[in-house]
Structure formats: structure tokens, C-alpha cells
């Protein structure tokens, strides 16, 4: 089936560097540094990435950070909780805009 998203394309990510090698190098050095153990563990960073992957709904990132989370020692329960955090923030982000709606509504409903 034809699709914009093909799992095999994930392995081609580095090919992007062919058209802008300096920018790619800067990106990949920074990306590598971001995921190194620091104040947060590699496992915690992989779980954050997994949650963000769901929030931005990137299939490549979901693929990569599901594997990374397992390889950093997270279990499916922890990973699903991370997905719920992403979902809660997305849902909450929609809901909190209800305040905007109420502000506008207050302004319009003068009586």
C-alpha cells in the first residue's frame, strides 16, 4: 500500500545531510548531546521523547522511541503512562482554551 510514511524511510534520516551537510552535522551533534545522560537519565529522556512523539504524532519518532525506551529499560506500563501524559497535555491544552472562549463570551454577552 502506498503511504507517505514508510518504516524503512527512518533509516534514510541521515541522507538528509547530503543536501546540507554542515547543518546536518550541527543538528546531529546537538541531538546526540541532548540524549546523553545528564541531570536526567537516558531512560527518562527516552520516555520524554516517547511522550512528545505522541503529542506531535510523528510515526518515525514513535517507532524510534518505543525501541529506545525498551532498550533503556522502561516497561510497557511506564511507556503507556508517558503516552497518557502526552494525551493529558494535548487534551488539557484544548480544554484550557475554554478560558479564552469564556473571555470572549463574557465580552459579547453584555447582558
Amino acid at each position: 500500500m502506498e503511504s507517505y510514511y514508510n518504516p524503512k524511510d527512518l533509516a534514510k534520516f541521515a541522507d538528509i545531510g547530503e543536501d546540507a551537510p554542515e547543518l546536518w552535522k550541527k543538528f546531529s551533534d546537538w541531538y546526540g548531546a541532548v540524549f546523553k545522560e545528564g541531570a536526567l537519565s537516558e531512560r527518562e529522556k527516552a520516555l520524554i521523547a516517547l511522550a512528545v512523539a505522541h503529542a506531535i504524532q510523528c510515526p518515525y519518532c514513535i517507532d524510534a522511541y518505543t525501541q529506545a525506551s525498551l532498550e533503556k529499560g522502561s516497561n510497557p506500563e511506564q511507556m503507556m503512562e508517558a503516552v497518557h501524559v502526552a494525551a493529558a497535555i494535548r487534551g488539557g491544552a484544548s480544554l484550557v482554551h475554554g478560558v479564552q472562549m469564556r473571555n470572549v463570551e463574557d465580552k459579547l454577552n453584555m447582558m
Binding site: S41, E42, R43, Q67, L70, E71, K72, G73
Partner: peptide, 17 residues
């Protein structure tokens, strides 16, 4: 050993868990 087709995590980290 991993529960599927992925590599094991850090030995010291999973030992602590």
C-alpha cells in the same frame, strides 16, 4: 533477557530496578 526484538538496557540500571 529482553521481552522481544530489542537490545538489553544498561546492566547496572536494570539491576538497580
Amino acid at each position: 533477557n529482553p521481552g522481544g526484538a530489542f537490545l538489553p538496557p544498561s546492566q547496572s540500571a536494570i539491576e538497580a530496578d
